[in-house]
Simulated assay, not measured.
Amino acid sequence: MSATVTRAASAGDTAVAVVRRVARARETGIALALVVVIVAATAANPGFVFSGDGFRDLLLTPSLLLLVAVGQAFVIITRSVDLSVGSIVGLTAYLTGRLFIDTPGIPMVAVFFGGILLGGLLGAINGVLVAWAKVPALVITLGTMYVYRGLNVAWTGSDRINASDLPRDFRGLGTQQVIGIPVLTVIAVAVLIAAAWYLRNRRGGREFYAIGSDPSAAHLYGLKVSSRIITAFVVSGALSGLAGVLYAARYGTVSSAAGTGWELQAIGAAVIGGVAISGGVGTVWGAAIGAFLLLTINRALPILGIDDFWQRAVVGVLIIGSIVLDRVLAVRQHRRLVAQREEAR
């Protein structure tokens, strides 16, 4: 009897601990903010959610940015940043169209592989320059952002990919649904779950956090800092490549402007989602919720009658507020650790 009571009490304590952990998580606050935005927009216009297109767009629109934000989170966790992701999306989106046009009958899987491979290769270039040349990631990726975009413009020229150039089955990925959920959203969530599992459960994932928290200590501990940084950029590039392929499926039309501005949106989504710009803190779950919040706000504010200027201002305030909050939490944690050390003495 006592053993049963003990187990029940232990289970209750565990449940309480889980609830407290979830309540204190940054991701919970961002998720609640997302819910508030959706409720407010739905109250103003029920079609925002309660219509076929409204519900579909609510899930579909942020899916591509989610992929890019997850890759960006890997890089930011290691105390770097990747400004070239938008250009990579544009390059791989155009590559996707050219593969279908220049190679009739090419398998869809081969096209996906080609886009991810190109994205990973461009990400590897970034990683090698950052890790081995010891040049700040902000400077390197700012340069490669313009280089990759220039290559895209030179390759595309005045040409563009039209929906009629793409196979019907491929275009169908942008509209098909599984149990009412868009296929692109299913793909994005599958990638999100895999990335979250890796960062939480694998040694390599935990090493990303160690490097971002203190690169010098990680070197002294014997971690392969350079290879991990390169890996983070490869992941970022590969996911941007995947997003580029899905961009072509989603929109059908691809020009040299595809992906423009996505780098700032991805960084904003990650930061809003609790990924500290100083590295070592945050989750891909937060980056994903940040992507949903960012694009849902962009859709919701016009419905609420808010001018375009204020739409951009709201996003800016969210980013600044997230950075300030990260700083405040870091200072509080430092003071708590100092207090605990003094008590131990």
Rank of each mutant, 00 (worst) to 15 (best):
V130P: 03
P136D: 02
A124T: 13
V139C: 03
R160W: 08
D159W: 02
G157W: 08
V130H: 03
G150M: 11
I125G: 09
G143C: 13
A154V: 15
K134M: 10
V128M: 09
T141Y: 07
A163E: 13
G150C: 13
G157R: 12
A163Y: 04
W155Y: 10
W155E: 11
V147T: 11
A131N: 03
T156H: 02
D159T: 03
A154T: 14
N126W: 06
L138V: 13
N126T: 03
A131I: 09
W132A: 04
A137F: 04
R149M: 10
R149S: 11
L138D: 04
V130N: 01
V139Y: 01
G127I: 09
R149K: 14
Y146A: 15
T144K: 05
L142E: 02
T141D: 05
A133M: 13
K134A: 13
V153N: 12
K134E: 12
M145K: 09
A131S: 12
A131V: 07
L129F: 04
A137N: 09
P136N: 03
V153G: 03
I140G: 06
G157A: 09
W155L: 12
A124V: 12
Y146T: 14
L151H: 08
L142M: 07
D159V: 00
P136K: 02
L142A: 02
I125E: 05
A163R: 11
T144M: 04
M145Q: 12
N152K: 07
Y146V: 15
A124Q: 08
R160L: 12
M145C: 08
K134S: 12
N162Q: 11
K134Q: 15
G127S: 04
N162I: 09
S158P: 03
W155H: 06
I161H: 02
L151W: 15
N162A: 10
N162E: 09
V130F: 01
A124R: 05
G150L: 09
T156E: 00
A137S: 15
L138M: 14
L151G: 15
L142F: 09
R149L: 07
V147E: 05
A133V: 11
T141S: 04
A124E: 07
M145Y: 07
I125H: 06
T141I: 09
V153E: 12
R149N: 11
T156Q: 03
A124S: 12
G127H: 06
L142W: 01
G127Q: 09
K134P: 08
V139A: 08
K134R: 15
L138W: 10
T144D: 06
I161F: 00
T156P: 01
V139S: 04
W132G: 03
V135Y: 04
M145R: 10
I125Y: 05
V128H: 08
V139M: 06
V153D: 14
D159P: 02
S158N: 15
L142R: 00
N126A: 03
V128A: 13
G127F: 07
R149A: 13
W132K: 14
A133E: 05
W132S: 11
T144F: 02
N152F: 06
N126S: 07
K134W: 12
G127N: 10
P136M: 04
V153M: 15
P136V: 01
L151C: 13
V139K: 01
I140E: 05
G127Y: 06
I125F: 11
T156S: 12
P136Y: 02
R149Y: 13
N152S: 15
V147D: 06
I125D: 01
N162V: 11
G150E: 10
R160I: 00
T156D: 02
